Simulated assay, not measured.
Amino acid sequence: MSSFFRRKAAAVTFAVLALSLAGGGIAVAQPSAKAPQEAVQPAARGTSNQPPVTAESARSAKAALAAGGVTTLAAANWYTVVNSNGTKARGTGTVIKYGAGQYEVQFGYNVSAGAFLATISRSDSCCIPPAGEISVAPRLGTPNGVFIQTRNSAGTPADLGFTLLTHTP
């Protein structure tokens, strides 16, 4: 009797395997050389490049580092609230506006190993901020700078106010 159940279990196992292979098959994803352009978000197309560091920006960054006078910091959090026109509303750092939706915030210390968090906001206590998108990254070529891009909901660069939080390890 036990051999009957063993044969029946083996038959059922082979039947399930055969039905799985015949009915569902095995799908193997083939890697593609390039993602289709439709799969890329509209806001991400061609907007990931930072503008070149200007002479004014380099001078400002060096002056901020010299004025900071701090070479090693304990872990610290700093914030900066920036208006849509590129002026600093409150917080730390110096703001430079490059073009539509492109900003740089410079600090008096090296933030290249830090973490950054940015959100679209208003500097006043009124109302909900406009809808949009924001990206933040370390500023290339400036160890004490953070680069921010803001876009409207359609992905077009737009001047939007924001709040930047910087954490240095």
Rank of each mutant, 00 (worst) to 15 (best):
residue 1 M to S: 14
residue 2 S to R: 10
residue 4 F to L: 14
residue 6 R to I: 15
residue 13 T to C: 09
residue 13 T to D: 09
residue 13 T to S: 12
residue 13 T to A: 14
residue 14 F to R: 02
residue 16 V to Y: 05
residue 18 A to C: 07
residue 24 G to I: 08
residue 28 V to E: 05
residue 29 A to I: 08
residue 32 S to K: 08
residue 35 A to L: 12
residue 43 A to P: 02
residue 45 R to S: 06
residue 45 R to W: 11
residue 47 T to F: 06
residue 52 P to F: 12
residue 54 T to L: 00
residue 55 A to D: 13
residue 55 A to S: 12
residue 57 S to I: 05
residue 62 K to D: 11
residue 62 K to H: 13
residue 63 A to K: 14
residue 65 L to C: 11
residue 71 T to D: 13
residue 74 A to Q: 12
residue 76 A to D: 13
residue 77 N to C: 07
residue 78 W to N: 12
residue 80 T to M: 10
residue 81 V to H: 08
residue 84 S to D: 15
residue 88 K to R: 15
residue 89 A to D: 10
residue 90 R to Y: 14
residue 91 G to L: 04
residue 92 T to H: 10
residue 95 V to I: 09
residue 95 V to F: 12
residue 95 V to Q: 01
residue 103 Y to C: 00
residue 109 Y to A: 05
residue 110 N to A: 06
residue 110 N to C: 03
residue 111 V to R: 01
residue 114 G to S: 05
residue 115 A to S: 15
residue 115 A to R: 07
residue 117 L to K: 06
residue 126 C to P: 01
residue 128 I to D: 08
residue 131 A to F: 08
residue 138 P to Y: 01
residue 138 P to I: 07
residue 140 L to G: 06
residue 143 P to Q: 02
residue 144 N to P: 04
residue 147 F to D: 01
residue 149 Q to K: 14
residue 151 R to Q: 08
residue 154 A to W: 05
residue 154 A to V: 14
residue 155 G to L: 02
residue 155 G to F: 02
residue 155 G to Y: 05
residue 156 T to P: 00
residue 158 A to T: 11
residue 160 L to G: 01
residue 164 L to F: 04
residue 167 H to R: 06
residue 169 P to E: 13
